[in-house]
Design a binder for these strands. Sequence first.
DNA 1: GTCTATATACGGATAGAC
DNA 2: GTCTATCCGTATATAGAC
Lengths: 218, 218
Amino acid sequence: MKRKNRPMGRPRKIDPADGQPCLSKRDCVLTAGQQVFLECGYAAASMDAVAVRANVSKATIYAYFDNKRALFEAVIGGRCVAALSEFTVPQQHGDARAVLTDLALQVLKRQLAPEALALHRVVLGEAPRQPELGEAFYAAGPALGIELVGRLFADLTRRGLLAIPEGKLPLVVDLFLAMLKGDVHTRALLGLPNGTHCLECIADMAADLVVARYGVVK
Amino acid sequence: MKRKNRPMGRPRKIDPADGQPCLSKRDCVLTAGQQVFLECGYAAASMDAVAVRANVSKATIYAYFDNKRALFEAVIGGRCVAALSEFTVPQQHGDARAVLTDLALQVLKRQLAPEALALHRVVLGEAPRQPELGEAFYAAGPALGIELVGRLFADLTRRGLLAIPEGKLPLVVDLFLAMLKGDVHTRALLGLPNGTHCLECIADMAADLVVARYGVVK
DNA sequence: GTCTATATACGGATAGAC
DNA sequence: GTCTATCCGTATATAGAC
């Protein structure tokens, strides 16, 4: 009884060329594609470059993916779900300010990771020509963030640590998350040296602004 | 005494092909390049497409611009300065909240203009490969905004309408501007239908959050 | 499945006539 | 300055051997 497609128990092969723990050829292609697309953008990326980086011939790529577009979608789809692997939802024992600061700092760090920035750039660049791509990215990224923070804010309100009117909750969530996309994020996206503010200061003030307006007086 | 380069008094020629008030061939090329680059992005844009849209041969393009990159820089440089044509600095007679709301709404509307969004996308996509481009965009856009809002906030503080400690001023400016890049902006950049919140509500709340924390008690 | 070699097309850039 | 025609590299995609 033959097994197909890397059955669970079988250890992965090692690529003899670079000694890295390369998986199936298909996975090699995906990884290489990821690197090339995120580095060059869709249009400037070439299948030759992907083939070289995957230690594979172009024909092999086309054995697994119909065309360039299909490979791109597979790559980006993979990155989208990977980028949003679960947050550590802050323990809500302390006061609201501490919780918000913690959350803000996590989001900030995650947004500034080089792969997150590259993904952001490439998706924005191609979204006008591939609507589904924009949808997928939004659903896997911003939409999840909004939902998660929304639940957290609602919880804090229910427990009397914040006092956000129901009708205003979505807007507060939106502005809270937006506050984390300031100068530091912009400069990072543009590839400029380093932002002017420290991440802790930003997280602090974002939490502070929300608490100043919607915190409960003690 | 011959005059060169479209002297002031001379009316512009009319392009016989489409009847539009086309300027010099060089300007036609610039305009066409603008459209093509903003639509397709740098890599996917072709000089053929620019030539067609400008009603000009490719050779003519190369008579004015050394190569594709040079044309791109000219186009983007032009858009960068055009995008930041002066704001109407709000009259500061009312209370701080009104001033901030007004300012926020202006920024929001400007950011969401289709050309601004397209420019944003294209610049982000190419910035990793063209550092000077990122610098130019940042200087003409975000940096100017930061400076302008910084001066406004400092003024309001000096006049007793806000109470922002000197040390915190840059951070408050940053977060205030960041609050305007929330969900609506994100969805617009991704080309998704329409944002969830109304612009006036966003501007209102952004101003509200700042005033709640740094407004003076009356 | 995987490779080498190639078909085919397109894009950046230029030569040379007018 | 402006055009037509063209060179030449490169890119996507495939054919066919193993």
